Simulated assay, not measured.
Amino acid sequence: MHDLVLRAGRIVDPARGHDAVGDIAFSDGRVAEVGTVTTGARDERDVTGMIVTPGIIDLHTHVYWGGTSLGVDPDSYAKPNGITTVVDAGSAGAGNFKGLRKHIIEPAEVRILPFLHIAFPGIFALSRLVNRGESADLTLLDCQACLEVAREHADIVVGIKVRLGRGGSGNSGIAPMEMALEVAEQTGLPLMTHLDYPPPYRPEVMPRLRKGDILTHCFRPFPNSPVAGDGAVQADVLAARERGVIFDIGHGKGSFGFETAMTMLGQGFLPDVISSDVHALSIDGPAFNMLNTMSKFLAMDVPLVEIVRASTINAARAIRLTDRGTFEPGLLGDATVLDIETGTFTFEDVVGKTIEGSQNFVCRGAVLDGRWWH
């Protein structure tokens, strides 16, 4: 007997090329069967008419609640949105990482995996009233300290994080990225790079990104936009994709523009990963949450399967995980149950531009570790 069976849902699993109505069973915290499940279960849920996807992974969040000014509570955020894995995008650095692990990651119900910030204090001063770039003072960046903590917590650290630009690094130029890259190379981990207002400028950043590194905020508005003045995708952006750089939305408070997005999509440049960059300043808008961010791509006519791909298997692969993101039997028993509401919905980007959409994702439930979680 299985622990849980979801009955008669539309199972959308892009990693396996699967999109069909069927059942999915979970046993011992793992995916057990997909298709027509004849075995009974201790818990059965009828999800007729709903969409069942592998557990949604939000690749860019800030959940060091109480430890940083920008943190949100991970379970309160994840559970109503059906997110089964949240990735903290560098809230903590070497100086406060143990607190993130002990006080947030270990007690949480949702799965949390962190990037480690190259800056010793992490993102320590981002709030409505105070904004101090953690990489503006290079004395706060120490490669050795970062390396030691990355190695000590190698069981959960999925990458190194750096924030570049006027907001994240002040006048430090490209130096914080070079330091973060050095640690990433030593650890064999991907680098997630945030780029906001210059300096530095995009042409300095893009060539340094390696295969498997992640450019977050990839559809940001001008300046440092990936779109040239003539509407073409910048050549260095195309070159980065060609060599395997991963492009992540990271919506947030200031990093997603409809004009950029629709231009990129119009030229066939889909993001590899859709993520919210939810934090204390974006959770009340314009990002709101992962489902709202995904719904914006519905409004821009991105096919459902591509939205699910960018929110599940592509996110898992970006942080080199092979145990989730798809319904392969034997993998982690995580799933998200979604519905698509129809009506008239207004979506807003970070510069105040709005578009109308006729569809909106809503969460009807989730499965975490093979059990109903909602």
Score class of each variant (00 low, 15 high):
P54M: 06
G49H: 08
L164C: 07
W65E: 15
D339S: 15
R243Q: 03
I214N: 09
R163G: 14
R101N: 01
F297V: 00
Y197M: 07
Q234F: 01
A280S: 14
L298I: 03
V183N: 05
I274E: 10
L100R: 01
A94L: 09
P198K: 06
L4V: 04
T36K: 12
G40E: 08
F345Q: 13
I118W: 08
G170V: 10
T39V: 05
E259N: 04
A25F: 10
R202D: 04
S27G: 10
A228K: 02
H374P: 00
V72W: 03
V63I: 06
G71D: 09
G254E: 01
L321S: 08
Y77C: 06
H2T: 03
R364E: 02
A32G: 05
I174L: 14
P54S: 12
R7K: 14
G343Y: 04
S275T: 00
R364Y: 04
G352P: 05
S27I: 00
A119Y: 05
D196A: 06
I274L: 12
G285E: 12
E33P: 09
V157T: 01
E204H: 14
A175F: 11
Y64F: 15
P80A: 10
P107Q: 11
V157K: 09
M192Y: 10
V52S: 13
P286D: 02
A335R: 15
I11V: 06
A94V: 08
D19L: 00
D248R: 03
G257N: 02
